[in-house]
Design a protein around this nucleic acid. Sequence first.
DNA 1: ACCGCTATTCAGTGTTACTATTTAGTGGTA
DNA 2: TACCACTAAATAGTAACACTGAATAGCGGT
Lengths: 116, 116
Amino acid sequence: MGKQMTEMLKGTLEGMILAILAVRPAYGYEITARLREEGFSDIVEGTVYAVLIRIEKRDLVDVEKVPSEKGPPRKVYSLNAQGGEYLEEFWGTWSFLAERIAELKQHIENTQEKGE
Amino acid sequence: MGKQMTEMLKGTLEGMILAILAVRPAYGYEITARLREEGFSDIVEGTVYAVLIRIEKRDLVDVEKVPSEKGPPRKVYSLNAQGGEYLEEFWGTWSFLAERIAELKQHIENTQEKGE
DNA sequence: ACCGCTATTCAGTGTTACTATTTAGTGGTA
DNA sequence: TACCACTAAATAGTAACACTGAATAGCGGT
């Protein structure tokens, strides 16, 4: 990851993973692969597992061990009620921030057009 | 700040401050006040000054001491060429992340409509 | 002499993503 | 057997960041 992206993921990666789980339950290796496909090309397993352990400790997800045909058992995570609430909060926080930043960007573009 | 917002500001607060400086030069106390007005109601001076010192060390800004009528001299920061480049990079990183997150949100909403 | 406002600095803390490695299970192949 | 490739999870240590709380400094007014 670029350094800027690494810092930006702090506070958003967790929300992104919860959002992925909101669609359907998933396990760590699978989530890592999906994030990689979606453009976060050098996210590594360790990072994702750390988030999963954290959200499990905070009781935002339910966990089920499911045997795999191809390796050790999978830990399948699914969003629970509390996790759903937390995700809602995340969307609120994110929307607020994204709006402010969009305003800042707009302000710069306006300024450059006509010299403010 | 809420805990979620605190974490989300990591990596974005710096970009926001550079964006503010891209419009016009400003000093720390002023930047703090502006951020507070714009909704980041409990950002404190210490946080902003830490960012300013950091971006000064990285040579992204020029600094000028300007006497104040109302207190100790102000350190007025202005974005330099290198800071401008860095800010461009920030917009790129931010846009990428914001798009991915928007997709995730859309995906959830679609899923909820028709049970995927 | 004291308070309020302006203005900057700094040591210490908690949280986070990253690095690099280890452990485990299955199947294929030389 | 021994070895590798792939799948799957865990973990110790590190760096970077925003925050807390306090200190310092200058000015004006009472």
